[in-house]
Amino acid sequence: MKMNLFVLISLMTWSHLAIAQDPIVGKWRTIDDETAKPRSIVEIYKKENLYYGKVIEMFLTPEEDPDPVCDDCDRSDPRYMKKVMGMEILKGAKRDGEEYVGGEILDPKNGKVYSCKLWLEEGNLKLRGYVAFFYRTQTWQKYE
Rank of each mutant, 00 (worst) to 15 (best):
F6D: 15
R39M: 14
L106G: 00
V7R: 03
I9C: 09
L125W: 00
L17E: 08
V101L: 11
E34C: 09
S10Q: 03
W140E: 03
K37R: 05
D74N: 07
E144R: 07
D22P: 14
L11W: 03
R29N: 10
M58S: 01
M3R: 09
L125R: 01
Q21I: 07
P38C: 11
Y100I: 12
R95T: 08
I19P: 05
D22T: 12
E64W: 00
R128Q: 01
K117M: 09
K27L: 11
Q138F: 12
F134L: 15
D107T: 07
K83H: 07
K142M: 14
V42W: 03
K109N: 06
G86A: 10
E34D: 09
I31F: 04
C116S: 07
I89G: 01
W119G: 09
I9H: 00
L127I: 13
F59G: 00
D33K: 15
K117R: 05
C73A: 02
K82Q: 10
P38S: 08
D74H: 02
E63V: 00
R128H: 04
R75A: 15
K46V: 09
T139A: 05
R79Q: 04
K54M: 11
L50T: 07
N4F: 03
E34F: 07
I31C: 09
D65Y: 01
Y135A: 11
Y51L: 07
V42F: 01
P108W: 03
R79F: 02
R75P: 10
L17D: 06
N124M: 14
R29K: 10
E34G: 13
E122P: 11
R95K: 08
T137N: 06
G111M: 06
Y45C: 11
L90I: 12
K27W: 09
T13E: 13
T137H: 12
G129Q: 00
M12Q: 08
L60Q: 05
G103P: 07
R29M: 15
K94I: 14
Q21L: 15
L118N: 00
L17Y: 05
G97C: 03
Y51P: 15
T35A: 15
K2P: 11
F133S: 11
V131I: 10
G102I: 04
M1A: 12
L50S: 10
K117F: 02
K142H: 02
R79I: 09
I24Y: 04
K91Y: 03
R39Q: 10
T61A: 15
K126S: 12
W28L: 13
G86D: 05
K91Q: 15
Q138A: 10
Y143K: 11
K37G: 01
G92Y: 08
K82L: 04
V42P: 00
E122Q: 04
A20F: 00
C70V: 04
I44Q: 01
A20G: 15
S40Y: 06
I44H: 04
G103T: 02
G86N: 06
W119L: 09
D96Q: 09
K112N: 07
E88K: 13
L60M: 06
G103E: 06
P62G: 10
K46D: 07
A132R: 11
L17V: 14
W14N: 13
L127V: 09
L60A: 04
M3P: 15
C73D: 05
G102Q: 04
G97N: 03
D67K: 12
K37L: 10
Q141S: 14
K82F: 01
E88Q: 07
R29E: 14
K54H: 09
I44M: 05
P78Q: 03
M3V: 13
